[in-house]
Simulated assay, not measured.
Amino acid sequence: MMSGGDGFADIVGRRYGSLKLPFNEKNSWTGSISMFISCFLLSAIMLFYFSSLGYVHVSCEEALGKLVLVALAATIVEFIPVNDVVDDNIFVPLATMVAFLLFSSAAR
């Protein structure tokens, strides 16, 4: 989520992100939307790749729903303005991991 989503959001946001978020002037709506989409797509590609190799066994419908929620959690954490206390390079992976664990344990 962090490497693909944040990296892609930065590139797209700098290029096309003229409309900034009202609570975080460093981020744009375009960058945030691209973060969500790229987080979801890259995670889905990786999940189905490892599933096709037999490392994980998931149903498509269940996995896609959870990936949407995890990508949304990562994007929401990315909204938070970066300061001395909150650094998105730490909190996006943490939020992703916590969301994944919560949604994984709810499925059991």
Score class of each variant (00 low, 15 high):
residue 19 L to E: 13
residue 19 L to Q: 14
residue 20 K to Q: 00
residue 21 L to M: 00
residue 21 L to Q: 03
residue 21 L to I: 01
residue 21 L to K: 03
residue 21 L to A: 04
residue 22 P to H: 15
residue 22 P to A: 12
residue 22 P to N: 14
residue 23 F to Y: 14
residue 23 F to D: 10
residue 23 F to W: 15
residue 24 N to K: 15
residue 24 N to L: 12
residue 24 N to P: 11
residue 25 E to M: 01
residue 25 E to T: 02
residue 26 K to R: 03
residue 26 K to A: 00
residue 26 K to M: 02
residue 27 N to L: 06
residue 27 N to C: 08
residue 27 N to M: 08
residue 27 N to W: 05
residue 27 N to D: 07
residue 27 N to T: 07
residue 28 S to D: 10
residue 28 S to C: 14
residue 29 W to Q: 10
residue 29 W to M: 11
residue 30 T to P: 09
residue 30 T to V: 15
residue 30 T to H: 12
residue 30 T to Q: 15
residue 31 G to M: 09
residue 31 G to K: 09
residue 31 G to D: 08
residue 31 G to E: 07
residue 31 G to C: 08
residue 32 S to F: 10
residue 32 S to H: 13
residue 32 S to V: 11
residue 33 I to F: 02
residue 33 I to L: 04
residue 33 I to D: 02
residue 34 S to C: 12
residue 34 S to W: 14
residue 34 S to H: 09
residue 35 M to E: 08
residue 36 F to I: 15
residue 36 F to S: 09
residue 36 F to C: 09
residue 37 I to V: 15
residue 37 I to M: 10
residue 37 I to L: 14
residue 38 S to V: 05
residue 39 C to A: 06
residue 39 C to D: 05
residue 40 F to K: 04
residue 40 F to C: 05
residue 40 F to E: 02
residue 40 F to R: 00
residue 40 F to A: 02
residue 40 F to L: 00
residue 41 L to C: 13
residue 41 L to K: 10
residue 41 L to V: 12
residue 41 L to T: 08
residue 42 L to G: 07
residue 42 L to W: 15
residue 42 L to S: 10
residue 43 S to L: 04
residue 44 A to T: 12
residue 44 A to K: 08
residue 45 I to R: 08
residue 45 I to D: 03
residue 46 M to W: 13
residue 46 M to Q: 09
residue 46 M to V: 13
residue 47 L to E: 03
residue 47 L to G: 01
residue 47 L to H: 04
residue 47 L to Q: 03
residue 48 F to S: 06
residue 48 F to N: 02
residue 49 Y to S: 05
residue 50 F to G: 06
residue 50 F to Q: 04
residue 50 F to V: 05
residue 50 F to E: 05
residue 51 S to D: 01
residue 51 S to L: 00
residue 51 S to G: 00
residue 52 S to K: 05
residue 52 S to W: 02
residue 52 S to V: 07
residue 52 S to E: 07
residue 52 S to C: 06
residue 53 L to I: 14
residue 53 L to E: 13
residue 53 L to K: 15
residue 54 G to I: 00
residue 54 G to V: 04
residue 54 G to T: 01
residue 55 Y to I: 07
residue 55 Y to W: 07
residue 55 Y to F: 08
residue 57 H to S: 09
residue 57 H to W: 02
residue 57 H to G: 05
residue 58 V to G: 00
residue 59 S to E: 14
residue 60 C to R: 04
residue 60 C to F: 06
residue 60 C to A: 04
residue 60 C to Y: 01
residue 60 C to Q: 04
residue 61 E to C: 10
residue 61 E to W: 12
residue 62 E to S: 14
residue 63 A to S: 06
residue 63 A to H: 04
residue 63 A to R: 02
residue 63 A to L: 02
residue 63 A to C: 03
residue 64 L to R: 11
residue 64 L to C: 13
residue 64 L to K: 13
residue 64 L to Y: 12
residue 64 L to Q: 10
residue 65 G to Y: 11
residue 65 G to S: 08
residue 66 K to R: 13
residue 66 K to N: 15
residue 66 K to Q: 12
residue 67 L to K: 06
residue 67 L to C: 01
residue 68 V to L: 07
residue 68 V to E: 06
residue 69 L to A: 11
residue 69 L to V: 09
residue 69 L to E: 09
residue 69 L to Q: 06
residue 69 L to P: 07
residue 69 L to N: 07
residue 70 V to S: 00
residue 70 V to L: 01
residue 72 L to T: 13
residue 72 L to D: 11
residue 72 L to V: 14
